[in-house]
Design a protein around this nucleic acid. Structure first.
Lengths: 392, 392
DNA sequence: CGGATAGTTGAGGGGGGTCAATGGCAGTGG
DNA sequence: CCACTGCCATTGACCCCCCTCAACTATCCG
């Protein structure tokens, strides 16, 4: 096997050369660049396996490098680690949100450096493997017309980004660089009203796209996106999408379906907000969440054959799944009593457009009426039917 | 010029033959069919210029004939007149809603018959001419990529349907036969809540499509559509749309844009319904209506050169336009004070999701504050800015 | 184990829905 | 021409739903 090749972009000669030395001793092949511009050139020409990059640099700063590297499909999947002085911590978050994979604060010692690099390289491999599974799943589910296959090939080449719970992926008003696909975890999109209350406009889990309408309209986002739990997502850049849309009608049809579904759902929600009591709205929100849950459960079950090796990756996640299975087997029908939802009151309130206190009160009522049960902050749905027939 | 060719479909031999005789005397070329099945065959083979058709027939009834004739693109644009016994009046409405152009109640005399036929033939010509103008307009506006041109060619071949104010075009739950394009007039789509209150989900005027998501999802309508004023619309059947979508990415892109826009607008409305006071919501609804008005006004103005002959067709409509122009010229800026809106309180209430009484009250307040003025049941917008900055 | 964060419960008040009565306006028929 | 009728818009009275504020309790985390 070839040596792993690392590119260091750093304007300070001392730091760059000493770092390079450490890495060479550790058995890596090292390339050096003394500013961002050169760095990008080297990256595109030599396609390193990993990039270390300073933020503060003349000519082109670290953000610029990251942006350009991500834009180029050949280098986009390359792990990218920021090197940064301690004072720049705040800017770091921005860097992470732009798609950097990790960061090291200067001064760093040898161990830190090598650890970060190795963990990143191994993680990349794992994620790549994991993602290729969910890709298979997608392909499997959606059939395999010419355009869709291209779409998936494109997804395959993209960098997988991990976001932590509560991390913001984009803000309302940000310019759009592409469309996002959730590989694992959950992401919510929200709109803020002037007085600061938020409305949850969508929840997206595995295999779902978000940020779609903004991309296709070529306008800034009209909503913010935030991870509900630790998630892995994948950015499909605008240029690629447009090319695919222009070439393959099937891709367009795919998105038309998604948009149409969304639209109808939103109209239903409008009706509910307009004329239904909080009580009924709460019930409807719970049902929406149940349906999501059942759907994703079903799609997971359908795949269980082909990926028994997944247990190597997920640990906590698998425990959850088995606990769900217990509650699911007693009656194997759709009408599954005992579905567990994990949502904060705040998110429930933001979905139904009401105050968190009201959510609390209504859930208490539901519990008294034995429609639901509370397990800590989780909600167990006992009687979907009564939720569906909730009077106004 | 060739003789105009008329097809009579009628199972009663006496009526059919006597009618045929009258028509031949009047100089038409006549074809006869003694039941629906034969009628459809003759229609597709000989492509008559007009079809007269009984409703109650063995083998295939009038509705069936109409359905099949409309489905075939070669015959879809042929004027279609129902012949019906007096007792069947109620069924008639159904026939008209399905796309018949007129009906005659048996027994009818010669004059009635010939009048109906001639008026229909001349109207067809006028409409065809008018529509080809709005087609030009569309093509002009949207550029002329390969797919779009096909789309317009298709529109050109379609029958134009006229609907009267308050006439329902489709109901919630109806199966979808195609997508609608408004050529003139205004159409609203509404959803009904269980307790009968309605929410207005969209208003569509010239050159806008409605019924889009239902078609593209292949599911029944989730809303009802009704004409707000006398309108002309055009149905683009499902099969054709699918073919175009599969062939031309540009067509798909077009609809993606429409859907995305709709989606973002709906999300904005969700936010408003969730957290804004009725007062602010009312202001927002008025602004939405103003924007629509200004937009359609602008697109009309852009075209005024190419269609001076239009005054032959519209009479009432043109008077409206000139009255608008008076209120528009004083300041030629966008910020036009004095925009006139014609909406019923009920529709306003349905748009904002509140009670009509509340609409009344708020409009009264706005009038006191000199933000609007009332001219009969019309509303004159005096101060858009204050509407936009309405506090919550 | 505190300190923070998330969730629950109570009291109070106002925004906006409901019901009902009245006022305007257009269409209809005498 | 007016009276009659029916529909739509307006206004008032009432009161209930749900939001706000506030205090309290549970849960999670270092």
């Amino acid at each position: 096997m070839n040596k792993t090749r690392i590119l260091i972009i750093e304007d300070n000669d001392d730091i760059r050369e000493s770092t390079a030395e450490i890495l060479e001793l550790a058995g890596y092949e090292v390339m050096q660049a003394e500013n961002g511009k050169i760095g990008v050139e080297v990256a595109t020409r030599n396609l390193p396996d990993l990039i270390l990059c300073d933020i503060m640099m003349p000519e082109l700063d670290g953000y610029g490098v990251l942006y350009l590297v991500n834009k180029n499909s050949q280098t986009a999947a390359t792990p990218f680690i920021f090197l940064t002085a301690k004072a720049e911590r705040l800017d770091m978050r921005k860097g992470m949100e732009m798609g950097a994979d990790d960061y090291l604060t200067k001064p760093f010692d040898d161990v830190e450096l090598l650890n970060a690099i190795e963990s990143r390289l191994s993680k990349k491999e794992k994620l790549q493997q994991f993602y290729s599974q969910s890709l298979d799943r997608l392909t499997h589910l959606l059939g395999n017309t010419p355009g869709i296959a291209e779409l998936h090939k494109m997804i395959a080449g993209r960098k997988v980004r991990t976001v932590k719970k509560k991390q913001v992926i984009y803000y309302d008003g940000d310019t759009v660089s592409g469309i996002y696909l959730v590989l694992s975890g959950k992401v919510k999109t929200t709109k803020l009203s002037e007085d600061g209350r938020e409305l949850l406009t969508g929840i997206y889990s595995s295999d779902e796209y978000f940020g779609v309408p903004a991309l296709l309209l070529n306008e800034p986002y009209t909503e913010a996106a935030e991870a509900l739990e630790d998630s892995t997502i994948c950015l499909l850049p605008k240029e690629m999408m447009e090319e695919l849309l222009n070439k393959y009608p099937a891709v367009g049809k795919q998105f038309i379906q998604i948009l149409s579904n969304n639209l109808i759902e939103k109209e239903e929600q409008l009706l509910q907000l307009a004329y239904h009591s909080v009580r009924k709205r709460m019930a409807e929100v719970l049902i929406r969440l149940c349906n999501r849950e059942e759907r994703s459960e079903r799609s997971e079950r359908g795949e269980r054959l082909e990926r028994t090796e997944r247990s190597k990756v997920g640990t906590r996640q698998d425990r959850e799944e088995s606990s769900k299975k217990n509650n699911e087997h007693p009656d194997s029908l759709e009408q599954s009593t005992g579905l567990i939802l994990k949502v904060s009151r705040d998110n429930l309130a933001a979905m139904a457009g009401m105050a968190t206190e009201t959510v609390s009160r209504i859930l208490s009522d539901f519990k008294d009426e034995e429609i639901i049960e509370r397990k800590g902050s989780q909600i167990v749905i006992l009687d979907q039917l009564r939720l569906k027939n909730m009077k106004n």
